[in-house]
């Protein structure tokens, strides 16, 4: 008995850690989360630095070496126009990542804010806007994006705004649902009874509590958006050729899949590792924050 009692120590009560540090501690313990984070960081490094170290100019065509298998000179071989697949795969994510990262920020901000405000007012305006949101969601997203892009052109800012708007619609629902859990809670009632303005309630009481849900949702949506943007490129509405891009590379090289599979595998592996990385990270991130993704609210 006494042996057991002595081995116990009072938990250190003086040392306080910020919630951020605690989240990081939890995240670090997750093996999958760290693999995901490594993959994401690796991709960001490749995207930012690759133009400096890639072995070949990704735009350089050479009719003599078309559709070649991997060799010491061309690690992943060459495509139909004799361009180096490895170099193109490395730089092929640059535009995609920039556009989707801007777009996801737009989506989280506008979708999150609208959702939180709708959850707070929760009246006729909420009812009306949510039905409109439902209506938008019933249209296939690719159709909306193709429509906007074909009217406004394939400029990067148009694509970023289009994706930000379209994916923000999903975020509205998530943010509203998360907010509804807190709107009836006593600390929001206390703020309302105090006479706080709606703006203060949103900023001080709601955003700090809904933030985690939005961050995780944003991370997940990023991976969906990458797939979406790649699809757009595949259809020829994404990146303007000849700028290398994963989706476009897959589209152009699928004809030579039987002869030079690396021309397709290169971009597929890059896209795949990034998306897997984001998913692993988002799951671990949610757990580290104490969220259950299946419920979308703190447990």
């Amino acid at each position: 008995m006494t042996l057991v009692a002595q081995s116990v120590e009072q938990p250190p009560r003086t040392k306080r850690r910020s919630p951020l540090a605690e989240t990081w501690d939890n995240l670090r313990k997750s093996w999958a989360g760290m693999v995901g984070l490594t993959l994401i960081v690796l991709h960001i490094l490749i995207a930012t630095t690759s133009p400096v170290w890639i072995p070949r100019d990704p735009l350089e065509m050479n009719a003599k070496i078309r559709t070649q298998a991997p060799s010491a000179e061309h690690l992943m071989g060459t495509d139909k126009l004799g361009r180096d697949v490895f170099s193109r795969s490395m730089v092929g994510g640059r535009v995609t990542m920039v556009v989707t990262l801007i777009a996801i920020s737009i989506a989280v901000v506008w979708g999150g804010l609208l959702g939180i405000v709708l959850g707070l007012v929760n009246g006729r305006a909420d009812e009306l806007i949510m039905r409109f949101v439902d209506a938008l969601l019933s249209i296939p997203w690719l159709l909306i994006i193709l429509l906007i892009v074909s009217v406004l052109g394939t400029k990067m800012w148009v694509q970023a705004l289009t994706f930000g708007f379209t994916y923000g619609i999903l975020t509205v629902r998530v943010a509203r649902a998360a907010t509804l859990d807190f709107v009836t809670s006593e600390f929001v009632l206390a703020a309302r009874a105090r006479g706080e303005r709606k703006r203060t309630i949103v900023i001080k009481e709601l955003i700090p509590n809904v933030r985690d849900v939005l961050l995780v949702d944003g991370a997940m949506n990023w991976s969906w958006m990458l797939l979406g943007f790649t699809s757009l490129s595949f259809l020829g509405f994404g990146v303007t050729p000849p700028t290398p891009d994963w989706g476009f590379m897959i589209a152009k090289n699928r004809e030579i899949l039987g002869v030079q599979p690396w021309a397709v595998f290169g971009p597929v592996v890059m896209l795949g590792t990034l998306i897997i990385g984001i998913n692993l990270f988002a799951d671990a991130f949610a757990k580290a924050l104490g969220l259950d993704r299946s419920q979308g609210a703190p447990v």
Partner: peptide, 15 residues
């Protein structure tokens, strides 16, 4: 001013 029953719920956990 109002004081609630459950202090767990009436204080914002993020503050």
């Amino acid at each position: 001013q109002l004081i609630f029953q459950n202090p767990d719920a009436s204080l914002n956990p993020r503050h």
